[in-house]
Write a protein that binds this DNA or RNA. Structure first.
Lengths: 336, 336
DNA sequence: AGCAATGGTGACAACGCTGTCAGATTTGGC
DNA sequence: GCCAAATCTGACAGCGTTGTCACCATTGCT
């Protein structure tokens, strides 16, 4: 077990000063080509890795990016991480995961977590990306951040955007086109901006089709399978039940599927069910769930890209809206 | 946007030396109680967070723990992370996620990743925890590690253990007790130690029940839903099909469920299906999947604990084996 | 009173690296 | 061949923290 090689070790072996080695390592000019070569060879031979603590101490950076989120579904978390890591590959930055229980109740706690983790920048997933106190505190403490699919204050910080409302409208239009006129909606967690944005999208589609508010029954959920079961039960156990259900994520859509089966309602013949997100579960349940795909990994990569640009002192580029895509599967069909 | 407070700032405001502040921050003795109090108050007022770069530079540490794994299911990844983070809460260490594509093909690449991330220690999930080259290289570079449910070389490093074989035997015995005598097995990825250990456990149960090898049909899979579908199809499309299928994880078990449904075979009346892991999907499919729960988060926390003990210079405690638990749900029933 | 042991405090250096600056060497223009 | 400009090189300081060590103050003991 050898001590890690330092610049000093390389300098001695190569017969140059530490500063020259440093110049070579950072691809700075003003080093003769032959010396540059020699230093590189020695560094490779010693398997040199720069000490980021020392680099960070000087530049007051840590080369750490914190990813914060609040117990969403596992596949969403993994997609976020995958997207961020894709962009970070080959960079000096590393990804630290910092899930936080409830940022809305304790915004200061989230920021304290980020500060004590000493991250240079933070990737904020919903719902923390929509909490003004969090953004204020981050601005104050000089921690850069990028917001992943925020629903409000779109002008603050750099954002990777999704048009949740348009996506909601798209999936609702799919059902309207199949002839459905009586709808059930299962909402997501009330604290998420996506919940109201997706609902607004549904309503856009309903209004355009001339569907009366009386024909729309809305139930609350919180994005969990369990909450979806309860809400689906309330929707489907009535005699004037809807012919189509819009669930605001796939876990709740799958739950609605399971409730329909338990009640003896064939899907999609008796009732159509659509989800949201195109999570793994949408392909694993039966019938497979019609849903809207949001390119989560690409968004996370975009947010990471924006964050890196900020950390390198670049300008904030204009936000772009990532496209959604309706994926029609077996759980939706023509109205009876 | 304020500069972060340093020890020097606190020292000036509290009218003491930097060293005394340091002593207070690290709960060292030899500071008068009133001074200790005063320093703590000033530190809190300035919202002081120690600079881990500086701390790390001195102690040649980074207070970073790397978690490595190789695209397992999202819920497994999240459980690992949750367990590790639970143990890390309140510690100075932070968790860096380092998924790596194929450690078996490129062990040196994985170690290079860990070295360049400058982690103090690594948590190795399967299959990298079973690759001797990886362990050798880590030993050589002085990166401590803890192995999460290794299947081989149990004497190397510190391990958080699972008795995969006993768990395999337990779930197989459940089916034997239901009267099944003709079995299909869907194996996991051939590179994982768990694959052969679980199979050995199945065989223990079969041998104890006097079931002939001819009545056991084994198909290969790789832990993905897709591979499970193909394997299940090969098992169920035959006339002498098994009355019970043992899938080595829940994704493949759910796939078998879906194939059975497509072939018009009622579960569990015509065929019983058991999974492994108690992943989310086991509760989300229909009928819900009988499976074996492995306490993944607790194991990850245990591994993290062992790693921290090593990093703090403690002794290696004896490994303990974490208990499995058979969870009987609707997908298994008496043999026809 | 005298002296050791203990408690309490701070000056200083060092961790590995890079910014600053001064100085040495080479190049190019006349 | 001479001077300015460009190219190259290294000594030194300092980032924020802690280990080492020296020192002063107090206590408890002959």
């Amino acid at each position: 077990m050898n001590r890690r090689a330092t610049i000093k070790d390389i300098a001695e072996q190569a017969g140059v000063s530490a500063k020259t080695v440093s110049r070579v390592m950072n691809d700075e000019p003003y080093v003769r080509d032959d010396i540059r070569e020699r230093v590189k060879r020695v560094a490779a031979a010693l398997d040199y890795h720069p000490n980021r603590n020392a680099q960070g101490l000087i530049s007051s950076r840590t080369f750490l990016i914190g990813l914060t989120y609040e117990r969403p579904s596992p596949s969403y978390v993994v997609d976020l991480q995958r997207g961020a890591l894709e962009r970070l590959a080959g960079e000096r930055y590393r990804l630290v995961v910092l899930p936080f229980a409830d940022a809305r109740e304790d915004p200061a706690g989230l920021v304290a977590l980020l500060r004590s983790a000493m991250v240079d920048g933070a990737l904020l997933a919903p719902p923390s990306c929509d909490i003004p106190e969090v953004l204020d505190a981050l601005d104050n403490s000089g921690i850069r951040y990028a917001r992943i699919t925020p629903g409000t204050m779109l002008e603050r910080g750099s954002c990777a955007l999704l048009d949740e409302r348009a996506a909601g409208r798209a999936i609702a239009e799919h059902l309207v086109q199949l002839g459905h006129r009586r709808f059930g909606v299962i909402l997501g967690h009330p604290g998420h901006a996506a919940t109201s944005a997706r609902l607004a999208g549904y309503r856009d589609a309903f209004a355009a089709a001339g569907i009366a508010p009386d024909d729309i029954r809305i139930e609350r959920g919180d994005f969990t399978f369990h909450s979806g079961e309860a809400a689906a039960h309330r929707l489907l156990a009535r005699t004037d039940r809807p012919t189509a259900i819009l669930a605001q994520n796939d876990d709740m859509g799958a739950a609605a599927l399971s409730v329909a089966r338990a009640l003896g309602l064939a899907v999609p013949d008796a009732v159509s069910i659509a989800g949201f997100d195109d999570a793994d579960i949408a392909r694993l349940c039966w019938p497979q769930l019609t849903t809207v795909e949001q390119p989560v990994a690409a968004i996370a990569a975009d947010a990471t890209d924006r964050l890196l640009k900020q950390l390198e002192g670049g300008e904030l580029a204009a936000a772009i809206t990532h496209p959604h895509r309706v994926i029609v599967r077996g759980s939706t069909g023509p109205a009876a």
